[in-house]
Design a protein around this nucleic acid. Sequence first.
RNA 1: GGGCAAUUGGCUCAGUGGUUAGAGCGCUUCCUUGACAUGGAAGAGGUCACAGGUUCGAUUCCUGUAUUGCCCACCA
Length: 784
Amino acid sequence: MNEISKHYNPSETEPKWLAFWEKEGIFRFDKKEKGKLYTIDTPPPTVSGKMHIGHAYSYTHEDFIAHYRRMKGENVFFPFGTDDNGLPTERLVEKLKNVRANKMKRSDFIKLCNETLKEITPDFINDWKKVGMSCDFSKTYSTIDDTRRRITQKAFADLYQKQKVFRQEAPVIWCPHCQTAIAQAELEDKESETMFNDIVFKLAEKNDLIIATTRPELLSSCVAVFVHPDDKRYKKLIGQKAQVPIFGNKVEILADKKVDPEKGSGAVMCCTFGDTTDVEWFKEYKLPLVMSLDKSGRMTEQAKKYAGLTAKEARAQIIKDLEKKKLLISQKKISHTVNIHERCKNEIEILNSEQWYIKILDQKKKFLELGKKIKWHPAFMRTRYENWIKNLGWDWAISRQRFFGIPFPVWYCEKCGEVKLADVKDLPVDPLSDKPKGKCEKCGSSEFIPEKDVMDTWATSSISPQLALQLFFSEKEAEKLMPMNLRPQAHDIISTWLFYTVVRSQYHFEKIPWKDAMISGHVLDEHGRKMSKSIGNVVAPQVILEKYGADALRYWSAGRSLGQNINYSEDEIQMGRKTTTKLWNAARFMSMNVKKAELLKSADAIEPADAWIVDELNKTIAKTTKAFENYAYAKAKEEIDAFFWSKFADYYVEFVKYRFFGDDAKSKKTGEKTIATVFFNIVKLYAPIMPFVTEEIFQTWFKHFEKVKSIHISEWPEEIKLKKAPNTSDFESAIKAIDEIRKYKTKQGLSLGAEIDTIKLKTKTNLKKYGEFLRKVGRVGGIK
RNA sequence: GGGCAAUUGGCUCAGUGGUUAGAGCGCUUCCUUGACAUGGAAGAGGUCACAGGUUCGAUUCCUGUAUUGCCCACCA
C-alpha cells in the first residue's frame, strides 16, 4: 500500500467522481424510483457569467440536505434551472457585447440575447457542478425556454381569469435609464448630496410663502402646497392660493399631517410626482396630474421653456432663473437617501403610465397567515417576511417596457380597447408576431393591437415550483405535488422571490408553495465587511476550488449555523482540507492492517475498547441525524468532527494497534471488524458535507458492503446493536489512565511510543481488568 | 426612525438557569510513536459587549445602552 499517497489530492479526484456521477446518473431523478418523494424548489441563479462566493455558500447548504435525504432513502427531486430572462440578462448582454438594447432592432437584440446565453450558460452551470451540487443536471430549464414561456403565460391567463391581474394607468416606479417600470422590491438606497432650495411662492397678500425643495425642476408639476394643520405659522393660509414661481399658475394650500413642520420651511410643494408622498396626496386629494418628466427622464411640454432638457439640466437652469428673479432665498447642501434601481444604480422617478399589476395589497392578511403555515429555518426569518408584507405600499407591477422577457399573451381591440387573451392551447405566443383568434368579445372587431411589454423576471421565477416540477412531471402531477418539501434560498430575497412565490401559489392553487423554507445568510470578508468590488475584498469560489477543492470549500460553508452570515476564512477552508487528508490517512491505516474490510455482526463478541467506540459512534449517529433533520448541518459537522478526530483518531486507532501487531488472532479480527465498521460509518456521515473524498474512500475500500454504485445512494447510518457488547460504563476511567500515562511521558520529554518500565496510577475505579490493555496501549511494563 | 440578527479566550465560532464556560486556528514546551508533522501530547489564555432587573443562583431569561451586519421607512 506504499504507493498510496499520504496526501489526498482533490484536483485529481474531484473531476473523476464528477464524471462518474454524471455517467452513472447517480443524481438523475426518476419519479418511478422507490422512496418517499422529497421535492426541492432549487433557486434558479441569475445568469451573470460566474458563480460568486455567496452562491457557493447557500447552494451547498441545500445540497447537504439533499444528500442527507437521499441517503435516508428518499427519492430526492433536486432540479436545476437558470433564471436568464428580463433586465438582468439584457444588462449582461449589453455589457458583454457592448451594445444598447434600445439602439437596436428588437428582434436583433433578442437574437443576440439568446445567442449569448447559449455561449455562457454551460460554463456558468459548470461552477455549480464543480462545488458538488447533487442536482439532476441531465435536464435543466431556463426561465425563457419554450416550456417555461408556456407555463408562465398560462399562469398569467389563470390570474387574468381569476381577476388577480389588472391593467391600470397609475403612478409607477420608473427607471429612466432602463426606460421601464420596476417593482418596489427592485429598489435600493443610495446616499447622495444635494441642494435644499428655499423658493418663494407669492401669495395674494403681501407675505411670501417659502417652500423648501430638492427638486426645483418639478415646479411645473406643482399641483398643491401642503402645510401641517397645527402649524401656527401657516394655519390662516390654509385654503388660500399660492403662485408657482416662473410658471405663474396658482395652486391651493392644503393641510396634511404628513408634513413635518420642522423640516425645511414647514411648507412643501406637491408635484406629480416627486416622491411617494406626492402619490398619496395625489390620490387622497384628487389632485390634477401634470407630468413634467417623460419616460426617458427629459422635461415634457408641461415644463414650457425647459422642455427637452434632462431633469438635471432643467434643475440647473431653473435655479439660475429663480436667482435672477430673486425668488431663491437660500440654498444649503444636505445629504439624503434616494431610491435607485438595483439593476442599473440610477435614480428612479415616479411616472404615470399604464402597467399590468398583480393584486397583493388586498390580501396582506392572507399572506401573513400563509407565512405562519410555512416552517422557517431559522424561525426568525419569518419576521422579516412579515415586516415586508406589513409595509407593502404598491400592488405588484409586473410589466416591463423591455425586450428580452416573456411577452404578455395579450392583444387589445383597436376599436374598443378590450383585452383579448390568447387561447390557452396556442401558448406560448408572441403577440408581436402572432395574431389572436376570433373577434373582440365586446365589440366584434377583428383588428387588434399587440401588447409590446414583457413580464418582469420575478413574474416567471415566482412560479419556480411549477417551472421545475414540469421538467419531470405532467402539469396535473405537478399541481398535486404542491406544496413542495423545501425552498432553500438566501435571506436577501425574502421580499421578492419568497414572497412572490407564496402569492402565486395561493392564487393558482390556494396552497402554500412549500412546507419548509431554509434561509441562508451572506458571506462577508475576513473582517465581517460586505464583499464589494470597490473595496477589493471579493473572493472568487473558482480560486478556492482550484486551490483547495470542493470538499474544503463545503467544509467552510458548513461552518456557521443556517441563517447566519459567515466570514470568509482561509483557515477554515484549510481545516476542511486537513479533514480530507485525515480521512484519507485513516483509510490508509485501515487498509494497511485490514486485508478485506468486514462489518461487525450483531453476534460478534467485541472487546471493551470496541464497545466503547461503537457506543460513541451510535451517539454521534443519533446527534448527526437529528441535526440534519433540523437543517443544522453546522451542528452535524461539529459532531462528526469531534467524534472522528478526538474519539476515533486520537484514541481508538491507538487502542487497536497492539492488537493488529500482536498474535491474538481473534482479538485482531474483532479489531479489524470494528475499525472497518466504525470508519465506514464516519465516511458516510461526512458524505453530505464532503461528497468527493468520501466517494473516493467508499469506492476504494467499502464498495463491497452495499450493492450501490455510489456512497451517495448508500444507506444513512443507523445505530449499531451488538448482542455481546461488554458494558463500557467504566471504560472512561481506562481512558483517563491512558491520559495520565501520556501526561507522564510528555513531562519526561519522552515520545509517546517510548517503552517505560512501571508507572503508578491513582484511580477510584478498579482498573485491573484493563491491565493488559493499558500496558499495551501505553507501552508500559507494569502498572501499579 | 422601525424591524431582524450578532456581540463568549489574540482570531473564527460552539454552548448552557447551577459544581473548575468548550472547540479549531494562533501561541508556549515537548514528541521524526510502524495512518497522517496538512500529525500527536501537554500547557498558557476568557470578570461570556456594557448597565439595570427577575431569581437562592445568569454568560444563559427580561429591559435598556453601545457596536457591527442585513431588511425596510424617510427622500418635500
